[in-house]
């Protein structure tokens, strides 16, 4: 009654082919069909940002993207940040600055931060806060997260 379609896209740098019914979201696809559970579900209505992934390099709420909409596109999830186990500067900085408490918002936060740092070399605090405004965190009060992103930006910049 609900025919599936075959979907090809790039996931964390690798080609991915998967059968999916069209009424599933990208979040369903990642977590339930592909088994990448790093991307979290907190609200399913685009408010909490726990499901944030990069779609063609930009942060989006995967709960609001219909799975077939990613055909031919590029998706990066938190699992794609350290594919070989070497932490990216952002991940290092999150640990180092105490930006992780319960960790449920962390994957989404990291993806929003990555979008920011991929497009802005040394963003000021205000811009960082704006970039993570779509990621709710109930634990940290955001400050150590902002500090971590500032630090990652600095380290990435210096490394260049």
């Amino acid at each position: 009654m609900n025919p599936t379609i075959t979907l090809s896209f790039t996931l964390n740098g690798r080609p991915q082919r998967v059968d999916v019914s069209p009424n599933r979201t990208l979040l369903d696809l990642l977590r339930e069909e592909i088994g990448l559970t790093g991307t979290k579900r907190g609200c399913d209505v685009g408010e909490c940002g726990a499901c944030t992934v990069l779609l063609d390099g930009r942060a989006v709420n995967s709960c609001l993207v219909l799975a077939p909409q990613v055909a031919g596109r590029e998706v990066v999830t938190v699992e794609g940040l350290a594919p070989l186990g070497t932490l990216a500067p952002l991940q290092e900085a999150f640990i180092h600055h105490g930006a992780v408490q319960c960790g449920f918002c962390t994957p989404g936060m990291l993806m929003s931060a990555k979008d920011l740092l991929d497009h802005s070399a040394r963003p000021p605090e205000r811009e960082i806060r704006e970039a993570i405004a779509g990621n709710l965190c109930r634990c940290t009060g955001y400050q150590q997260i902002v500090e971590a992103i500032e630090d990652a930006a600095r380290r990435t910049h210096e490394a260049r």
């Binding site: 977590r31 990448l36 559970t37 790093g38 991307t39 979290k40 579900r41 999830t77 938190v78 699992e79 940040l81 350290a82 932490l87 991940q91 999150f94 640990i95 180092h96 105490g98 992780v100 960790g103 449920f104 962390t106 994957p107 990291l110």
Partner: peptide
């Protein structure tokens, strides 16, 4: 000391397992 959280690695890589995972 500000020791790093013992559970942070899993949480920044997406490998930490929460109940729904």
């Amino acid at each position: 000391n500000s020791e790093r959280r013992v559970d942070a690695w899993g949480k920044v890589t997406g490998s930490a397992k929460f109940a729904a995972d």
